[in-house]
Design a protein around this nucleic acid. Structure first.
Lengths: 236, 236
DNA sequence: TAGATTGTTAATCGATTAACAATC
DNA sequence: TAGATTGTTAATCGATTAACAATC
C-alpha cells in the first residue's frame, strides 16, 4: 500500500465494487479480463478502470489485460481485507441485532465481539453467541481488548457522547448508523450510513421523474391513508 | 419543483443533511440563519449552501439570511416529504425486520404495508402490525395496491429476479440492500445501500491512516483469533 | 511480427469556491 | 442611509474521459 500520494475518495468508494465484480468473475472461473470487458459489465468507462487501478500500481499487462485472481487479491490487500477486524456494537436494537446476526461479516473477517446497551432486558442476553453487556462496562472492555471498529446503532441523542468516549479510549474507526454528525478528533475515522438520507434521496428522484410540477396534495388525498404517529423505539 | 434544469446528484445527496440541520434549528427555536452561520455548523462553505439552494429558487433575503421554518418546509417539499409513501419489504430477515420495526419511518410518512418472504416460518406472522405474506402473493398485491417503494432485503441470488418482476409490475422505486447491481429499466429508480461496501471503505481508511506500509501479517498474528466460517443466513 | 491492451498524458467535463454587484 | 447577506457570475479545483505511445 503506497502511502505516497493521496487517493481520491471517489476512487476509494469504487474499490469495493471492483472487488465484488472480480470475486464474481473468479467464481465463474474466468482467469483474465480486459478493462474494456470489465467496463461493459460494470457500466463504467474502461478509462476509469485503468485510471483507478493505476493509483495503486500496474496490475495489468499490455496486450493481455488483467489476471482476475491476481487483481482480486491485490484489491483485497488494498482494502485491508487480508486481516481480521474486531468490532463492537453499541446499541442492541433492531439494526444492531441485524448486524450481529449477519453471518457474512464473520466470513469476511469482520468479527463482532460484544454488544453494549442500556436496556436491562437485553443485558446478559446472547445474540448468535455474542454477549450483550451493560454500557457501563464499555470503558473497561475497550481499554482491555482490541477494538478496530465501533458500530454505532443507538439513538441520536446518545450517539455523540458515546462516540466521544470511544475516541477518548482509543477506538479509531466508527461505523455510524445514528442520524447525526459525529464530532470526533482528526485521527478517528467515521463512515456514515444514514439510512434515512438514502431513502429521502430515492424519494426525491421518484418525485422528480413522476410528479414533477404536479400538485402534491392530490397525492396525499389519493393514496393517503391516516398514519397515527407511534412512539416506541427511536433507534437508528 | 422546477422540472427545468437537471440538478446534480451531489446537490441532491446533500439535501437530506440540510433538512436535518434545519429541523434541529427549528427545534431550538432559531428563526433565521445566514449561509455563513449554517456553513460553520455544517462544516461546508457558505458559497456551497447558497449555490445548492439556488438550484431550487431564491429562498433567502439579502441582508437577512434565511427564515429557518420557511426553508425547512421548502426543502421538505423539494424532497417530496409532504406526502405519504407506501412501501413493501421483500425479505423478512434481520434487516427487513429492523426496518419494519423502525418507527421513525412511519412518523415521516414512510409506511411499510406488507412484508414478503419465502420462509414458511415467517409467513402469516405479524411484525409490529405488518403482515408477512408468501412471496407468491406479491404479484397480486403489487398489481392491486399502490406501492411507491420496494425495499429489497433478500439474498443476492434472488434480488435480481425479484427486482425485474417488480419493475414489470410497475414499481418505480427500489431501495436496495442486496449486495448486487440491479438491472432495471430506465424509468425505475434504484438507491443502493450496500452496507458491506460502506464498511470496506472505512477499513481502507483505517489501514491507510494506521497501517500504511506495514506488514499486514503481523496483525493477523497479533490480533488474530480463529474464526470459524458460519453458514446460516446469507440475507442482505 | 501484428494485434491487443495497458499505463499515462492531455482534454474535457462537472463541482466547488471566490468574488462582488444587487438589494433587503 | 449603512450594514449585512443574498443571488449569481467567474475562477479554481478535482474527477472523468479521450487519446496514444509503450509494450506484452
Amino acid at each position: 500500500m503506497d502511502s505516497e500520494k493521496k487517493i481520491s475518495p471517489a476512487v476509494i468508494n469504487r474499490l469495493p465494487r471492483y472487488y465484488r465484480y472480480l470475486g464474481d468473475l473468479l467464481e465463474s472461473d474466468i482467469t483474465r479480463i480486459s478493462s474494456k470487458e470489465l467496463s461493459a459489465k460494470m457500466n463504467i468507462t474502461a478509462s476509469q478502470i485503468r485510471q483507478d487501478l493505476n493509483n495503486f500500481g500496474g496490475f495489468g499487462q499490455q496486450g493481455y489485460g488483467y489476471n482476475v485472481e491476481y487483481l482480486y487479491n491485490e484489491i483485497k490487500k488494498i482494502l485491508g481485507l487480508d486481516r481480521l477486524y474486531n468490532m463492537i456494537v453499541i446499541g442492541g436494537g433492531n439494526i444492531g441485532q441485524a448486524l450481529v446476526n449477519y453471518t457474512n461479516f464473520e466470513k469476511r473477517g469482520f468479527v463482532i465481539k460484544a454488544v453494549f446497551d442500556i436496556n436491562p432486558r437485553l443485558i446478559g442476553m446472547t445474540i448468535r453467541g455474542v454477549e450483550v453487556y451493560d454500557i457501563d462496562q464499555m470503558e473497561e472492555y475497550v481499554k482491555n481488548n482490541p477494538v478496530d471498529v465501533a458500530i454505532l446503532t443507538l439513538p441520536r441523542s446518545q450517539a455523540v457522547k458515546v462516540a466521544n468516549d470511544l475516541a477518548k479510549w482509543g477506538v479509531k474507526g466508527m461505523w455510524n448508523f445514528s442520524h447525526v454528525d459525529l464530532q470526533v478528533p482528526d485521527d478517528v475515522l467515521v463512515e456514515n450510513v444514514h439510512l434515512t438520507d438514502s431513502l429521502m434521496t430515492l424519494l426525491y428522484k421518484i418525485n422528480e421523474m413522476y410528479y414533477s410540477g404536479e400538485d402534491m396534495h392530490e397525492h396525499q388525498l389519493k393514496d393517503g391513508l391516516p398514519v397515527k404517529p407511534v412512539q416506541e423505539n427511536e433507534e437508528l
